[in-house]
Structure formats: structure tokens, C-alpha cells
């Protein structure tokens, strides 16, 4: 038992480092992509081409005063950022990095990956509720409503892959893609996954909960410094996790000719990440009612239809 515990902690710490690095890279990429798409250069000063920008920002945040407003519920306020970040790390546990180099291959891995962000929803609500601030409460409510609305179509989109592969284990799903990617067999499912993931990550065009003009900072209004940084880390770590999962489950992970599997895996993951960034800086933001009706009236029916179609396809594959 101790050996297993030690193994898991080593994996977890290792993945924490990976997550932290991917967060730094993600934030940097975000600003560079945003810059270039807006015909400017983005960060350039800190390090060559601004590479050290995120590191500098992180160090700055470490030095900021830890401000806990007077009327907050202390337990909730302190616990919320931790509750937000932990699921992101936990979801990294079932992703098969580079054929199949996976921390733990759970038999119900796919469902685990989809279930763990539910804890993150609780974190958002607790943050909003414990902040003793009207805007935080409202932002928390809206954000949570959006998150749960998109969990269903997201799960349904992955379900089509589960049907095709006949298994809930991420490793098995990866192995079944040696001939053809599941994104090819269920393109609508893949498209749905991308769209719903963008919504789950609160990214434009679904980023109303963070819309500054409307809700100040939404549920993280009262958070400053390092505590706020944890919410950011949770978001970008989740971004990386979701893209890696999509790459493994829809795009065949590490499979590919010539290059070693880990390289393919990174390429596919970052292809998804860059695509989502591209969307973010191109498309204007949806209104909250558009966001909610989209998930209920459009995406869920489309997801169900996709399941029906895929089920039929599956009989012939």
C-alpha cells in the first residue's frame, strides 16, 4: 500500500509540475496568439520574445498581499481555490500520454475524467457564496449554471467514442485507434467535444461569467494575489487536460508514423489548444441567454442524434 501511495504521489507531483509548466506556456501562448491576431507582438521584454513573462507574473503574484475581506466565510473562501485546482490535477491521472504511458488506467477512466470537473463546479459556487459580495454570488450562479448545462452534451459527445471503442478505459480507447481516428468515425462528436469544452473552460465565446463590464470579476472578484492565481491555474490546467484528453480519445494520442509517440501526443494536444485560442480571439461573446439555450435546444439534441448515427455506424465497423 505504501508503495502504491508513493507511486501515486510521485506521479501527482510530476504531473503538477507538468501542469504548472503547461499553465505558464498556455498563458504565454494566449498572449502571443492574441497579440499576433491583433497585429501586435504581445510580450517581448521579459526574456527572448517574452518567454519569461508568465514566470515573472507568477513571482509577482507570490509577493502580493493576501487580502481576505472582512465579511467572508473563511472556510469557504480558503477552500474554494483548492477545490478548483485539485480536479484539474486529478483529471490528468487517466490520460494516456504517449502510448500508453498512463499514471493509472482506471476501468471507468472516461467517466472519471468527466466526473471530476463536477468538483470544480462546487468550487465556483462556494467561491461565489462565501465572498459576501453580490457580484460574486451572481457570477458564481451564472458560471455554475453554464458549467452544468454544458456537462451533459460534453459527456454525450465522448459517449460516442465509448460506443465505438467498447470500453470506458482511456488506454483501450487509444489502442483501438491504430487504424483510424475516432474523430473521423464520429466527426460530429469531435466537433461537439471541442465546442462544449470551450464552454466548460469559460472561454470566449462563452466567457460571460468573466465579463468585466458586467460582473466585475464574477465569482473571483474578491480574490487577489496567489489565491486568484489558483483559479487561473485551474482554468489553464483544465485547458491542457481537456485538450490532452481530446487528443488521446479522438485523435489517436501518440499514434503516428516516424516521430516518437510523445512528440505526436504533444503536437495533437497543442493543435487543439491553439485551435481553441484561435476561436477565442476571433469570435465575439455570446449573451447569457444564447449560451443557455444553445446547450439545451441545440447541443443536446445534436449530441443525441450523433449517438444514434454512431450506434448505427458502429454495427458496421
Amino acid at each position: 500500500m505504501m508503495v502504491t501511495l508513493a507511486t501515486s504521489v510521485v506521479w501527482a507531483v510530476g504531473l503538477f509540475v507538468v501542469a504548472a509548466l503547461s499553465v505558464m506556456l498556455g498563458v504565454y501562448l494566449e498572449r502571443k496568439v492574441a497579440g499576433h491576431m491583433q497585429a501586435r507582438l504581445g510580450p517581448m521584454r521579459t526574456g527572448p520574445h517574452g518567454i519569461a513573462q508568465t514566470l515573472a507574473d507568477t513571482v509577482k503574484l507570490l509577493f502580493k498581499e493576501d487580502l481576505i475581506p472582512g465579511k467572508v466565510d473563511r472556510l469557504g473562501f480558503i477552500v474554494a481555490p483548492l477545490l478548483a485546482f485539485a480536479p484539474a490535477l486529478m483529471s490528468l491521472m487517466v490520460i494516456p500520454y504517449a502510448r500508453p504511458f498512463v499514471p493509472r488506467d482506471l476501468n471507468a477512466g472516461v467517466l472519471y475524467f468527466l466526473a471530476v470537473p463536477a468538483i470544480g463546479v462546487i468550487a465556483v459556487m462556494v467561491a461565489g457564496l462565501s465572498s459576501a459580495n453580490n457580484y460574486s454570488l451572481l457570477g458564481g450562479l451564472r458560471s455554475a449554471a453554464q458549467l452544468i448545462s454544458y456537462e451533459i452534451p460534453r459527456s454525450l459527445s465522448v459517449l460516442s467514442v465509448v460506443m465505438l471503442a467498447g470500453s470506458l478505459s482511456t488506454v483501450t480507447i487509444l489502442e483501438r485507434q491504430t487504424h483510424v481516428w475516432f474523430a473521423v468515425l464520429t466527426p460530429i462528436g469531435f466537433a461537439l467535444y471541442i465546442i462544449t469544452t470551450i464552454a466548460e473552460l469559460n472561454r470566449t465565446p462563452f466567457d460571460l461569467p468573466e465579463a468585466e463590464a458586467e460582473l466585475v470579476g464574477g465569482y473571483h472578484t474578491e480574490y487577489s494575489g496567489l489565491r486568484w492565481a489558483f483559479f487561473m491555474m485551474a482554468e489553464y490546467a483544465g485547458f491542457f487536460a481537456a485538450s490532452a484528453f481530446g487528443a488521446a480519445v479522438f485523435l489517436g494520442g501518440g499514434n503516428g508514423p516516424l516521430l516518437p509517440p510523445i512528440v505526436w501526443f504533444v503536437i495533437k494536444t497543442y493543435a487543439i489548444i491553439l485551435f481553441m485560442m484561435w476561436v477565442k480571439w476571433t469570435v465575439p461573446r455570446f449573451r447569457i441567454d444564447q449560451v443557455m439555450t444553445l446547450s439545451r435546444k441545440v447541443l443536446i439534441p445534436v449530441a443525441l442524434l450523433n449517438l444514434a448515427v454512431t450506434a448505427v455506424v458502429m454495427q458496421y465497423v
Binding site: 501515486s8 501527482a12 507531483v13 503538477f16 483548492l82 485539485a86 484539474a88 486529478m90 490528468l92
Partner: peptide, 22 residues
């Protein structure tokens, strides 16, 4: 054990950062 290990690090690592920041 694996799940709990990851959950533990997920909570402890940010907490540790906060602690260092103190």
C-alpha cells in the same frame, strides 16, 4: 490510493505555495 494521492497533491501543492508566500 492513486485517486487520493492525486487529490492530496492537488490540495497540498497550492496550499504549500500559499504557505511559502507567507
Amino acid at each position: 490510493i492513486f485517486i487520493l494521492g492525486f487529490a492530496l497533491v492537488g490540495v497540498a501543492a497550492p496550499a504549500a505555495l500559499l504557505f511559502i508566500g507567507r
